[in-house]
Simulated assay, not measured.
Amino acid sequence: MGIDIAQSTPTAAAMAQLVQAHYPLGEVVAGEFLRRSFNQVYRLTLADGRHVVARLCAERPRGAPQLQFEADVLQHLRAGGCPVATSLPTRSGEVALRVQLPEGERAVMLFEHLSGEATSDLPANIEAFGRGLARLHTAGEGLHSSASHYTLDLDYLLLLPLQRLLRAPTMTAELRPQFEALGQRLHNRILSLGALTQVLCHGDAHSDNNFIAVRDNGEREAVFFDFDECGPGHLAYELAVYPWWLHPRAVDGLWSDKAATRWRQFITAYREVRVLSDADLAALPLFVAVRQFWLLGEYAGRVPVWGSQAMSTDYLHRQVKLLGQWEGLEMPAV
Rank of each mutant, 00 (worst) to 15 (best):
D216K: 15
G26E: 06
E219F: 15
I126H: 05
I3R: 14
F293H: 05
V199R: 13
S37W: 03
T11V: 03
S145H: 01
A14M: 09
L158H: 03
G104L: 04
V290Q: 07
V108L: 11
H247I: 03
Q163L: 04
G31H: 07
N125C: 03
N217G: 06
Y242P: 03
I190S: 01
A195G: 03
D153Y: 09
E70L: 01
F224P: 07
I126E: 05
N39L: 02
T261G: 06
A16T: 05
A260Y: 15
G116Y: 11
V305I: 13
H317L: 09
L56S: 07
V199M: 04
N210M: 10
W245N: 12
R302T: 04
R302C: 02
N188K: 12
Q184N: 10
A139L: 09
V214C: 14
D278F: 10
S37A: 13
W306M: 10
G307P: 04
Q75D: 12
W294N: 00
H187A: 01
G132W: 10
P285S: 11
W306V: 02
G142W: 11
R302V: 00
C201Q: 14
L136Y: 04
L254F: 09
Q68S: 12
G253V: 03
G231H: 13
H187S: 06
R135P: 00
D228F: 10
L235N: 07
Q7P: 00
G26Q: 05
R106I: 02
A96T: 10
A222T: 12
Y315V: 06
F293V: 04
A195R: 14
S146K: 14
M171F: 03
E327I: 02
R189P: 00
C82R: 10
D252R: 14
